[in-house]
């Protein structure tokens, strides 16, 4: 296992899903699923970088400095696993890197009206495109989809057919096995932390 992705269970889902789905897509693309390329660990706290800032995700690379935060982790994964995460047969348009910036700056932490504006632009971009970059799902799709999927208010906008192109694209992204697997794994990790808490409660009750 050469890469390890730490995921905070305390962080907003929108900041976690892009990196989690990207890591899951890398693991799915590799034949030997028993030995994942990117190991996933869930932590019950935000992840501090050396300067003390709290981050939702961090990627540890073998023999290398860890990288912190959604955007840096996505960029590092794109560099290390370009064959899996780049869109095939891309001829025109913005690059994957620019869409990582779009997802992390226009969708994360933005207010409702700003996100609706970003979704309108995404919808227009997808008019004659099946995927955001090239002709296969890439890290551009994963970054944007993950950021929207993690926010129920924003995701409900693309679930409705108002923005028909974004709606069609979101349905495809939802059907991708790595999306489902990533979300299920995160839910399992969240659920696994609850029984520990409730057993503590029980001990307290017994003690009292």
């Amino acid at each position: 296992m050469s890469y390890a992705l730490d995921i905070s269970l305390k962080a907003p889902l929108a900041a976690v899903y892009p990196a989690l789905i990207a890591a899951t897509a890398i693991n799915h693309a590799v034949a030997n699923a028993a030995n994942p390329v990117v190991g996933l660990s869930y932590l019950d706290a935000d992840i501090p970088s050396p300067d003390g800032t709290a981050h939702p995700v961090a990627l540890k690379l073998q023999n290398d400095e860890p990288v912190y935060g959604t955007r840096a982790v996505l960029e590092a994964l794109l560099t290390s696993h370009a064959t899996v995460l780049r869109g095939a047969n891309s001829r025109t348009g913005k690059l994957e890197e620019e869409w990582i910036v779009f997802a992390t700056s226009r969708l994360l932490g933005a207010d409702y009206r700003a996100v609706v504006k970003a979704i309108e632009e995404l919808d227009a971009h997808l008019t004659l495109r099946t995927f955001i970059v090239g002709y296969t799902p890439s890290i551009a799709d994963i970054a944007v989809y993950g950021a929207l999927r993690g926010n129920s208010q924003f995701y409900s906008i693309v679930r409705k057919p108002t923005y028909v192109n974004a709606h069609r694209w979101a349905k495809y992204m939802e059907s991708a096995p790595s999306s489902t697997a990533a979300l299920d794994a995160h839910k399992a990790a969240t659920d696994a932390r609850k029984p520990a808490g409730s057993s503590d409660d029980r001990k307290k009750t017994q003690a009292g």
């Binding site: 025109t92 632009e121 971009h125 997808l126 004659l128 495109r129």
Partner: peptide, 12 residues
């Protein structure tokens, strides 16, 4: 021949 930017592109 399909120009994928024929309609729709407003992304900045």
């Amino acid at each position: 021949v399909v120009d994928v930017d024929e309609v729709g592109t407003v992304v900045r």
